[in-house]
Design a protein around this nucleic acid. Structure first.
Lengths: 138, 138
DNA sequence: TTATAAATGCAATAATATTTTATTTGAATT
DNA sequence: AATTCAAATAAAATATTATTGCATTTATAA
């Protein structure tokens, strides 16, 4: 099942409408290898169906909530979720040279357990981003 | 040894000058519990010694290079380094309510080892940010 | 097919960040 | 204490990322 199909399924399941802007953003992110900003996405959308950037931000908000996409904070951009991965810790390996971002799973994630006892946080979520050089750029 | 003194020591060791703007930024960050943007810092600097925001960005760049401060990417802000911690993985626990950010050490950090073999990245650095509620806000 | 909640468009604005060029200054040296 | 100059800063313009409020349109359930 493709990324787009899987995403549509998730949208419907959660009572969100299938709209033009949402489909356009899904199609752009399906192909992207590097994190794209809302403005990047605006440029990649086919010229005959222009979308307001504000709309793109709102679409991205919904997609993030549904875990259809993830925000790569160190790059201020968004990438599609890799549905092949199981639910768990969504982490990214990011290439400093070409910008490529690969999602990967931390099967045995111990981040929460490393939080010192004296920091009594009720933790809800976390993100790990690793910067380096991908195979091609190394 | 205070954060400011330790920072001065590191600046001198690396042949950077001790200047007004650098001292002002150090003094602001020494007290801050939450990540501050360059513009936040500009507002916190004493009124009788205004600093250009561009200068603050450049000061922050140097400080980041020297690991005197860290950027909290999920908040687009900067916090002082906690020199009490040993060198290693600088991670943050961030409160979603009050914004507080506590640096903590992952003694046995396994992030790099969780990167799948097929992603042949040469990893250089990484950041982990955990969002939740601190003891006061929980 | 129609009613309506949800989604979008538009305009304005805020917040964060960078580039270029000219000027000033910290501190090493004399 | 005066001199010197690489290093640091200021200023102005511009780029990039993000949000808010309100009017209008649309996807879909009934």
């Amino acid at each position: 099942m493709t990324f787009v199909d899987q995403s549509i399924k998730i949208l419907k399941k959660n009572k969100y409408k299938i709209t033009g802007p949402r489909m356009a953003v899904l199609n752009v992110l399906e192909e992207a290898k590097i994190p794209l900003s809302a403005y990047d996405i605006e440029e990649h959308v086919p010229e005959h169906i222009p979308i307001n950037v504000v709309t793109i931000y709102r679409v991205l908000d919904v997609f993030e909530t549904l875990n259809i996409i993830h925000k790569v904070h160190t790059k201020e951009g968004y990438v599609r979720c890799d549905f092949e991965l199981q639910k768990g810790c969504h982490s990214f390996a990011i290439c400093n040279k070409c910008g490529r971002a690969d999602e990967f799973l931390q099967e045995k994630c111990d981040l929460k357990s490393t939080l010192p006892k004296k920091l009594a946080y009720k933790s809800l979520s976390h993100i790990s981003e690793l910067s380096g050089l991908c195979e091609q750029c190394a």
